[in-house]
Simulated scan of single mutants.
Amino acid sequence: MTTLPIKLTPGASADRIDGWDTDPDGRPVLKVRVRARPIEGEANTALIKLLAKTLGVPKSAVSLARGGQSRTKMIAVEGLSEPELKARLTDL
């Protein structure tokens, strides 16, 4: 299992991955925007769906590990090593 730090922006005009940024502590985070609103987990569901499609893995392989009600989240991805995950995100 590989973890992926995310900074999520809900309510965007389109679902998209904006690339890598750093958080205030200097750690890398992947910036992601989804159209869904942060109501009843809709934005989290949209995030998981977008990441699964982008990474080429089933939705069941992507789960929310931490940050359910925060914009900063930690996503767990099953079946990909860290180098494989970063390579698939670099090819965007």
Rank of each mutant, 00 (worst) to 15 (best):
I6V: 13
P38V: 01
R66A: 15
G68M: 00
I75W: 12
E84T: 00
P38E: 12
K53S: 12
P28E: 14
S60E: 14
A87C: 01
A52N: 03
G68R: 04
P83T: 03
L30R: 01
T9A: 10
S70V: 00
A43L: 00
D21R: 06
L89M: 10
A46H: 07
L50T: 11
D18I: 03
L55C: 14
V62R: 02
G11H: 03
W20N: 05
R16Q: 12
R88H: 09
E40N: 14
I48L: 15
P38I: 01
G79P: 01
R35T: 15
A61R: 02
L55N: 06
P58F: 11
K53V: 05
P58R: 09
L4Q: 02
P83E: 02
L50H: 13
V57N: 10
S60N: 06
T2V: 12
A46M: 09
G11I: 00
V77P: 01
R88P: 10
A52T: 08
L85C: 08
L30W: 04
K7E: 09
D21Q: 10
P28M: 04
A76E: 12
R71D: 14
L4N: 02
R88L: 12
G19D: 02
S13T: 11
A36K: 00
A65S: 14
W20Q: 06
G19C: 06
V57L: 08
I39L: 15
D25L: 15
V62I: 11
I6S: 02
A65I: 06
L51A: 05
D15Y: 14
A43S: 12
